[in-house]
């Protein structure tokens, strides 16, 4: 098998390149390899779409404004306050 035939069947490499392309850079040759692979592989095309959506969802989720429900409990806050006061009054 020549290199390009190999990549046509190599889903492991293709998915690796999809990730690399999505958040970094791939070389021209890698781009070509990926294109050839995706042209013939429906499963990896699905993977590519899902992977991009997952990245988007995670970004959105992580960048959301502070959730009001997540708070430190008052007991711990009091302890922190004491600790700070103690250090300042030393």
């Amino acid at each position: 098998m020549d290199e390009l035939t190999k990549i046509a069947y190599n889903c492991k490499k293709a998915t690796y390149l999809i990730e690399k392309q999505d958040i970094g850079e791939i070389t021209l040759r890698e781009k070509l390899e990926l294109k050839i692979h995706l042209a013939g592989c429906r499963v990896c095309r699905v993977f590519q779409q899902q992977s991009a959506t997952i990245n988007r969802m995670i970004r959105n989720m992580l960048h959301r404004p502070v959730d009001e429900n997540i708070k430190l409990d008052d007991k711990f806050k009091n302890e922190l306050q004491h600790l700070i006061d103690e250090q300042l009054d030393k």
């Binding site: 190599n10 492991k12 490499k13 699905v46 779409q49 959506t53």
Partner: peptide, 22 residues
Amino acid sequence: DAHNWKPNHRPAEFGIEQTDLL
């Protein structure tokens, strides 16, 4: 050897392909 998907690990469409479901 071939590095293609094992049958039981193959991605299938499940509704997040184009739109996010957040």
